[in-house]
Nucleic acid binder design. Sequence first.
DNA 1: ATTGTTTTATTCATGAAGCGAACGAAGTGC
DNA 2: GCACTTCGTTCGCTTCATGAATAAAACAAT
Lengths: 402, 402
Amino acid sequence: MTAISLSSRETARRRLLDALRREGPMARVEIGQHLGMSPASVSELTASLLDEGILVAEDAADQAAGLFRGRPKTRLFFAETLGSVVGVWTGFNRIELRLVDSAGRNRASRHIERPLRSLGAEALMDVLAETIGVFAQESGAMDVKAVGLACQGYVDTKDGIVAWSPVLGTRDLPLASGLGERLGRPVLIENDASAMAFAITQRHAELRSGRTACLMVGDGVGLGFLIQGELYRGARFGGSEFGHVRLRRSGPQCRCGGRGCIEAYLADYALHRDAQLIDHRPAPTLLLPSEEAMGSIVDQARAGDPALINLFHAAGEVLGDAVGILIQTLEPDHIVLCGPGTRAMDLLRPSFEAALESQTIPELRALATIHVVESSMDLLTEGVVMQALRELDLDLARLKAA
Amino acid sequence: MTAISLSSRETARRRLLDALRREGPMARVEIGQHLGMSPASVSELTASLLDEGILVAEDAADQAAGLFRGRPKTRLFFAETLGSVVGVWTGFNRIELRLVDSAGRNRASRHIERPLRSLGAEALMDVLAETIGVFAQESGAMDVKAVGLACQGYVDTKDGIVAWSPVLGTRDLPLASGLGERLGRPVLIENDASAMAFAITQRHAELRSGRTACLMVGDGVGLGFLIQGELYRGARFGGSEFGHVRLRRSGPQCRCGGRGCIEAYLADYALHRDAQLIDHRPAPTLLLPSEEAMGSIVDQARAGDPALINLFHAAGEVLGDAVGILIQTLEPDHIVLCGPGTRAMDLLRPSFEAALESQTIPELRALATIHVVESSMDLLTEGVVMQALRELDLDLARLKAA
DNA sequence: ATTGTTTTATTCATGAAGCGAACGAAGTGC
DNA sequence: GCACTTCGTTCGCTTCATGAATAAAACAAT
């Protein structure tokens, strides 16, 4: 499951299948209009996809009754027999699982509470493989074709190695091959912010043109960067772990070991930790605070608690500085703020905007539209499962070609 | 002179001409080996280039005497009759000019002292047009086909507008069209750091693969980012003016109006200003300190002046933080530190490396090779003139096609 | 001088990919 | 049954790149 450069045909094929997953069943003409392809090309592409058994034509009977003139459309969609794919997200003390069919439709999902950090490399992979296996079985999926796993940290998607992750507690872990051997299936791994960024851009067409930087605020702070709808890949990892950029030299402690990282102000664990301190409560034991705990902090701040308001003020300022850096460095067309952290956007906004304005000129700021997309962590599994599906599409094509 | 997406043929043509400018005259076989093209394709491409009069075959007589067997190579190179191109860089109180022929060879260069900031938009463009015209005439160039101009600031290359520049003192200046009308020739404008980055990557083959981030330290601090040897273009400007990222909330004054920008620590004007202050000398009147003035500051620091050593220590720390941000955001394969500011790299290095190490994990740091390229400001005119030549190549191709 | 050797350059046929236009297919409305 | 409309396929054309065969231009050997 490596991403080499794609041939012209493979790109067209991918665009077609992507569009079908996003839009649902479409007739050939519709696909052509949607992608700006000639009917001839669509015919050619779909012919081989039908031939390979990846797509099937919808029964004419299924269609809306004949209120139209002309030859009726025959909609195409993914065959039901292609098997399914599991998407996984590993958080600090939580694993999210999702099962989708080849069309990307949700079949089952679940999350379990399970701390992972304390396990060693082998035990960690054993637990993950076991968890994935049980989930698939209990969901009645006998036909899992691939697995996609997203986690925070420096994830080398190409070689399948997690160089460092705050949630796994290991270094240079060959997670893709380790899980792949245990499960007997190809495993794709990805940074979680990239996975979420991909899921969000799949849902919003305007974000798939130009350059889109998605800042995910939640458990940590991550960055997913896309150019023309495709994830930007850096030298190995992709523009990720932006949360560990140090913005304040002597700022609060971050779990990466440093001080003053973006995350140490903005992430749920940081806000929760500081709020507990303000309330003179004991330090939290759970690394990943619950949505209820975070909600109550936000409510108290909205009710006017001055110390908590200050907390969000400082966080908003850091967010503004972070977006300023993104704008000055990547100059994106779109900036997306996403993840659970956007729940408090009303509290962050004043200081966020002030900080952003104080470090960018209007001409530059005007280039990037800032979108706040309320999104929960289950978009992560959606993103990574989509990517696994796309890799599977490619593998199938190459299998037939060989 | 707009950069639209290139056709397959145009890309091949550009690669061929780029290679000839870099490597000098080459025979068709050599071009093929160099670019990984089949002889048939090279033959086809060169046939039309010869036909259009852009290339000519070298005289057989010019070649080395026949110590070789087989049919002798006929080297191809740019026709002498194609005209020349002027490259310009505008600094605070200085204009650098360069005249090159169509092969990119230097024909003449000059720099004049002339402050620009105090002029209005029209007067500024009058002065520039006049200066360029006189330079071309006095260099005996009757055949200037295009002009490339690089300057610091937010430069929209596509629309030819300078949104803001610390050296020009105007806003949203339509410089390309304004100069173009005055000179009667197409004018390409570019951010100066991008121009230098392009020049440097043209000289070093290894920097043309993967992602290369060039941080230019000198008059200001700029960033040029290239992917596979082509300049990254953001929404409008390109990943530029990185020097105005604010790294220290309450840092020293920057000429952009903000405080604590990277530039306010690292740029020549900032170091010079602070050194003057330490020596209890009057504030400098010249905005761009001379190379001698900078050299004397560096010498004093090397001789052990503790206050100046501190100055460079703080600058190095900011440089380390800046490179850390670049690594975490763009994850480049290569980082190039260039520009006159590298003259003091020995003084910057200890704090630079400490700061970089304190905010990046080793796995991530190991991905990017850091190159220090000693380069003076005259590489700027080389970079922008090369880009103007490439645009001219394209225009010629499109002219023939139409 | 003639012939062979070696290297360079061109030509030609082929294949991949996309597309416009023409044509066939499959319905509805009368 | 026939016109009409819309959908999908087929055919021929174009662009582009390439391998193979061929031509070209020298030198070396006889």
